[in-house]
Design a protein around this nucleic acid. Sequence first.
DNA 1: GTCTATAGCCTGATAGAC
DNA 2: GTCTATCAGGCTATAGAC
Lengths: 195, 195
Amino acid sequence: MKTSTTSTTYEAILETAYRLFAEHGFDKTSMAIIAKEIGISKPALYYHFKSKEAIIDVLFDEICKSITFANFFSIEQYSKDNFEEKLIVDGLSIIQSQTEDEYYSRIMHQYQALGYRNPKYMQKLIESLDGFTTGFHELLRHGVSLRVVKDGDTLAHAQMLTMIIDGIDNFMTYGFQCRYDKIWAKTVKSIVRGE
Amino acid sequence: MKTSTTSTTYEAILETAYRLFAEHGFDKTSMAIIAKEIGISKPALYYHFKSKEAIIDVLFDEICKSITFANFFSIEQYSKDNFEEKLIVDGLSIIQSQTEDEYYSRIMHQYQALGYRNPKYMQKLIESLDGFTTGFHELLRHGVSLRVVKDGDTLAHAQMLTMIIDGIDNFMTYGFQCRYDKIWAKTVKSIVRGE
DNA sequence: GTCTATAGCCTGATAGAC
DNA sequence: GTCTATCAGGCTATAGAC
């Protein structure tokens, strides 16, 4: 998310909706409020998006695109020498990027709640999780082949890394005071070095 | 949750609301639908609860009461001989209990979304997380004093355990196929044995 | 592309009888 | 404790003018 500067009405709608949805929830953010906040009328809004759900869907697509595994980890850059350190640093960069967008977790929780009721969202959420576990799995196997990661149940380890990344984000959004860097580093080291 | 058999109207309201809220969300579950599902009228519902929010609040209190650390872990039962194994088993029992209530995670995600907008819910959610980290922290320090847990940053380790429990629950609700038992056991062992 | 006006529905909540 | 009837207000979405 975070489109640079608002130029078109279309972009203004997406940015404003993103913020209002995060702040007040999908249900409590009416089309009228979104329109008023931008300074246009409700029908003008409907000119750009055929329904409220359409806005929600477009936003979800954009969010999903911005949080792929490949955006944060480049397997080819991992070598025998930098493996553990780079995995720690790249992981922290995810955490960092989520700190910078205060609305991300708030709105994501809502898509998760939607997912339980609507397969359309559920599917993408699972794809996203799957992308991370698959990515970590490849990365770890690469590490094994480099002989810098101890061989073991790399799939379970990949799932564990995904879970911790997800959990850290979750905790952070609550302003829960944790040594997040330490937790991530500890997890990575434990997995790389193999218990 | 899960009151045995429904005897009073009051209990019927709570049980039905719990299920409908989990299935369709707070906003999309109207007082009329709840009343209809039970077989009473809307005003009858308002006789027992002064507002929709009152139902949501009572449900949240009950849920919070049922997921305290002490309900799953009894520090005094942990000895030098059974420590690691018992920590694994007790952790799995949480995961197990959440499998048995298919609605738990669904409704919990909604309270989390509410928490971002309403300090009333936020506070209890944080208290709950805090209860687990504090509990694990005590447990780990107990383990250290028993010389069965390697000394280290027990607070960070306690937060890590909380995060994994939370994350496992999260993943499970999506029907994500994981070796949850393996992930939990791996985490516990890594922490108990110290890296 | 944007507007005013409004249709049509659903909502939370209540008045008042039994 | 439970009912029928009802209200006031908010909602999504659209018709039709500019």
